[in-house]
Design a protein around this nucleic acid. Structure first.
Lengths: 190, 190
DNA sequence: CTCTAATTTCAGAAATTACTGAAATTTATG
DNA sequence: CATAAATTTCAGTAATTTCTGAAATTAGAG
């Protein structure tokens, strides 16, 4: 591996974290490299930068493409494929969320739904179903929130983040204001 | 493995998903089993239920304890250790979020901070730093939101989830109400 | 259509991770 | 403190995942 020290540290870190994030070392390293590079790289650039085999690069790029984390670019008068990551980190976040949901949450939700359709054959199964139902409810609440929020523009999303827990206070304030308004016009409503 | 069919399907699914979630099969299976069981289980119960070795159970339980996902219980006049998961799925969610943040996000944030302290030695490094800075900003916004929201009670958290994107509309409404109020008392403020 | 560059596929090797059984250690009890 | 039950450790093995090099395929230029 022959990279500027800063880039190398970043790439190595992403490689190490890869396993915790459920991707492998090479995929993590390639993503980090593409993310931090100032221009698109072709497969052979990656082979050289990371000292790994050409076929490994090919398979890892395919994996990154399956995750929609990488963009294919073409350079005039050059038949090779060049790759970058999207510029906008918020867009990257959205993609990551979408793909992880698809791979890590949706299959579980569908298993839960299926198992909750069954008629329990014993007290033990009846209890298990009750627990699965709790899990299902939680996951559905979370995904419903996600489906709602994912359409927001970056600016609105940032606003929502900055609000954080203040939202609940805001909600209280709104309730007070509304009920105040109501009291003025409809004084007899509870 | 000798379990009621429903429980078995659930356990096997968690085992399979394990790799995507960054835990191994056995750990996933044991968690699922404990989660869905109506009473605490001891190590030998798990050995029998999942047909795996006693030492594997021991190591996997240790792993689950490191994640704070499992509770150690004692039954009177029985020296064996019994295990369950917390009852409250919201509490489980909180624990999961906290542990994943600790393992998957914090180390990256600390690497980013360190690399952004360095003086870039080339134009390529300067560009890389700019990209790392974008990533850092995003992660810090997200973790700031998380730190804010994690203290909320379950009920408030559920409220926040139910609001979803409506928060931004609510915020607009509040702005209008406030500026309306201001106009009445301070008509010359822009 | 032919030639060549670029990319992909895939069988096997290498590396890593998970699992087991035996031995060691810890813990509770009389 | 001796004993037995429960649990943990760990070295070796099994299973899985990752990676490579060679061969096959695809795509572009002439």
């Amino acid at each position: 591996m022959n990279l500027p020290p800063l880039l190398q540290s970043f790439v190595l870190h992403f490689g190490e974290m890869g396993s915790r994030w459920g991707i492998n070392r090479t995929v993590g390293q390639i993503y980090a490299l593409l993310y931090a590079s100032s221009k698109p790289l072709c497969a052979d650039d990656i082979v050289e930068a990371l000292s790994i085999s050409r076929s490994n690069v090919s398979m890892s790029l395919r994996e990154l493409q399956a995750w929609n984390l990488v963009i294919l670019k073409h350079i005039p008068d050059d038949r090779r494929d060049y790759f970058t990551t999207p510029d906008d980190v918020w867009q990257i976040l959205r993609t990551l969320a979408e793909e992880r949901k698809k791979r890590e949450v949706d299959p579980t939700l569908s298993v839960l739904r299926e198992l909750l359709m069954q008629t329990p054959g014993s007290e033990e199964e009846r209890h298990a179903q009750a627990r699965l139902a709790e899990m299902q409810t939680l996951i559905e609440q979370l995904t419903k929130w996600y489906d709602d929020v994912k359409h927001l523009e970056t600016e609105q999303l940032a606003t929502l983040l900055n609000l954080g827990a203040k939202v609940t206070r805001l909600l209280d304030a709104k309730d007070r204001i509304v009920s105040l308004g109501r009291r003025r016009t409809e004084p007899k409503t509870p």
